[in-house]
Design a protein around this nucleic acid. Structure first.
Lengths: 341, 341
DNA sequence: TTGTATGCGTTATCAT
DNA sequence: ATGATAACGCATACAA
């Protein structure tokens, strides 16, 4: 347990004052070459590492940005975090992650912890905290939000058009001749889930197709709920030839349920998801889905935070969601698709 | 941008000294009920939040533990991080994550950053830093390592018996009648990859089965390499009836390659992986694999760090890896299995 | 250009 | 039990 080297020790070793060392470290002012050399030698000789705490306390900046996620272990958020990391790299700022576990209280607590740690800025990914809370965070520190729009902070919020993407995804199925399309939606409490469903309904309506309540199931964005929903659909008595799961994870569950029932994808039933998780390229068959550019979203978000930190405007780009057609969807061949039971 | 409330302000509001407030906050000493009440009122009235930086600087403890991963976005590490979080929760310590991206330099840099942030302890997940570096970290702060054994720090290192698990997995295939089993190994540079291969070879040898070099391919633990390897195997001229992929991700790739070639799993070829990623329950068919209890591993690791922090011994438990038989493996029916081309 | 003096918000060491 | 006072390690306004 060797005691860390302090700036004062370096100063002494180099025969200069602490201020001078600090100046060299931060490039705060001009220093004579002579002393600079001496200091740099002492610096590397003593293997000096600045104490981030002391630095933060003195300067008021910690060179860190807090990042709040909803589930650090999910492929979706995990990838975004990597993007944030990438976007921050080279800037001198370090991301500090905290997990809200999809629960408002924990999310709120996570934010408070980060604030107490004096992060210089904050990125909130998803979540459902009261707008008021979000605004109070923004009042304390530069803030960028992904996945929702907070009134009063529109410029710092990045939201993707889930409805439009869902509409296009449904259109894709309709263009393939499908007329009876089931939907496994996410939890109604979730904004994205509602938007995706709206897109689904809009596409049906536009094509003059009836909205069959029995063909719309609610899930919770996790695999088991997709499995259950698809099982019910197959066992139900409404015909359908395609399933639109509101996210890839539920599509995976549905895929397995169909497999169990001996239903082929895409020969008997076309299946689509939403998110384009890394695994979706390797499911059997590869899944048609909407690509969420998670990594890039992370990068963009981080960049925006850096802009705010440097006093510039937010300047978040508009990002389009695109349908990725793979092999889980096919042209409808039979007249009816799969009937129930 | 309201200025945060300081301890001094609370003290003034309560009509006591800063020391007294600090004492109440930390339970460092007895305080009269009278003052305690006054302080607590001021505390909540002013909504005081301690400044973690100042606290760390003064006390020498930051109540944070650094966690170094190799890929924060992978299902494997992501889940372990959740476990670490869980294991730390309630202890007052907060995890701070840093990503080494599977690269020694970055990993080393990550460690330095965490050390500079004055974390009170460190958890290193995987990685391949020189033993010397690891020991120097351990000299600076309590350290727990997962996935490798550092000479001199054996007690603080948690390693699972990959070889044994791979042996058992291969045995499972052999018991199902398979005699020509292909192996898609991980990168030879990776210790786990070598261990798993060793287990595979041991099982073959024990059963008196020949080791066919053409049936052993090297991958990189990612899906595309599994796809490529399986494609080559199918196109090669050596017969085989089962594939043991050294991790689930490569198994996914192999699964798709087989699908493309019109090879059925498990009817024509049995397929096994290693890790038991969340998705593996929902592949078609669900994958037989070795379960790595990632979440629990994280919990256990965190607990160990807490023990070290409180001056107790490491006390890491022994953890067994178990084969999870699902539907991607079946009894061999034909005499030969799948022939090449 | 360089050094001195102060302050950052807390905890810890003294007295009392 | 409580209150001054001195660290903690660094940055910075000010002086020289």
């Amino acid at each position: 347990m060797e005691t860390p080297v302090t700036l004062a020790q370096v100063a002494r070793a180099a025969g200069v004052s602490a201020s001078t060392v600090s100046r060299i470290l931060n490039g705060t002012a001009q220093v004579s070459d002579e002393k600079r050399v001496a200091v740099e030698r002492a610096l590397s000789q003593l293997n000096y590492r600045p104490n981030v705490l002391a630095r933060g306390l003195a300067s008021g900046r910690t060179m860190s940005v807090g990042v709040v996620t909803q589930d650090i272990s999910s492929p979706f958020y995990g990838d975004m975090l990597r993007g944030v990391e990438q976007g921050l790299s080279g800037s001198g700022y370090m991301p500090i992650f905290a997990d809200g576990h999809w629960r408002a209280e924990e999310e709120s607590a996570a934010i408070d912890v980060l604030l107490a740690r004096k992060v210089d800025a904050m990125i909130v990914l998803g979540g459902s905290l009261p707008d008021e809370k979000m605004r109070s965070v923004a009042a304390a520190v530069p803030l960028v939000v992904f996945g929702r729009t907070v009134p009063g902070l529109e410029e710092q919020c990045l939201r993707l058009d889930n409805e439009k993407a869902a509409y296009e995804l449904t259109r894709h199925l309709i263009e393939f001749g499908h007329r009876r399309i089931a939907h496994i939606m996410g939890p109604v409490s979730h904004r994205d889930a509602r938007d995706r469903r709206a897109g689904y309904e809009a596409a049906l309506a536009e094509a003059g197709l009836p909205l069959v309540p029995e063909l719309v199931m609610e899930g919770d964005f996790l695999e088991p709920s997709g499995f259950l929903a698809a099982t019910r659909l197959v066992e139900g008595r409404e015909m359908f030839s395609a399933i639109f799961a509101a996210n890839d994870q539920m599509a995976y569950g549905a895929r397995l349920a169909l497999h169990r029932k001996g239903v082929r994808v895409p020969e008997d039933i076309s299946l689509v998801g939403f998110d384009d998780l890394p695994s979706s390229t390797y499911t059997t068959p590869p899944l048609t889905t909407v690509r969420q550019p998670t990594f890039d979203l992370g990068v963009v978000t981080a960049r925006c935070v850096l802009r705010l930190l440097s006093g510039e405007g937010p300047d978040l780009p508009h990002i389009d969601l695109r349908v990725h057609v793979r092999e889980s969807t096919a042209m409808l061949r039979t007249a009816h698709g799969l009937a129930g039971r």
